[in-house]
Computed example of a mutant assay.
Amino acid sequence: MAKYQSAETILKELGEHAMEAAKAALADGAAVVADEARRRCPVYDGRDRRVIKGALKKSIHTVKRKGGKEYRIVADAQAQDGLFYGTIVEFSPKAGRPFLYPALDAKRKTVQDIIVERVREAVRKK
Rank of each mutant, 00 (worst) to 15 (best):
K12F: 02
E13A: 10
L14K: 12
L14R: 03
L14N: 03
E16C: 05
H17M: 11
A18I: 08
E20H: 15
E20M: 15
E20W: 14
A21W: 07
A21I: 12
A22W: 07
A22K: 02
K23G: 04
A24G: 10
A24M: 11
A24F: 08
A25R: 08
A25L: 13
L26F: 14
A27V: 07
A27D: 12
A27C: 12
D28C: 07
G29M: 03
G29P: 02
G29D: 00
A30Q: 13
A30F: 13
A31C: 03
A31D: 11
V32Y: 00
A34N: 09
D35P: 11
D35A: 15
E36Q: 15
E36V: 14
A37L: 08
A37Y: 02
R38I: 08
R39K: 06
R39Q: 05
R39H: 07
R39A: 08
R40T: 01
R40F: 02
C41V: 02
C41L: 01
V43P: 01
D45G: 06
G46I: 06
R47D: 08
R47A: 06
R47K: 09
R47H: 05
D48K: 02
D48M: 00
D48L: 07
R49V: 10
R50V: 07
R50Q: 10
V51K: 00
V51L: 09
K53P: 10
K53W: 07
A55D: 14
A55Q: 13
A55E: 15
A55V: 12
L56Q: 01
K57P: 03
K57L: 10
K58V: 12
R65D: 05
K66E: 06
G68W: 10
E70I: 10
E70K: 14
Y71R: 09
R72N: 11
R72T: 08
I73G: 00
V74N: 00
V74I: 05
D76Q: 09
D76F: 06
D76V: 03
A77C: 07
A77T: 03
Q78H: 13
Q78L: 12
L83H: 13
L83M: 14
F84P: 12
Y85F: 14
G86V: 13
G86W: 07
G86P: 10
T87G: 14
I88S: 09
V89F: 12
E90C: 04
E90I: 01
P93N: 03
P93T: 05
A95L: 11
G96L: 03
G96F: 09
R97H: 14
P98Y: 10
F99H: 15
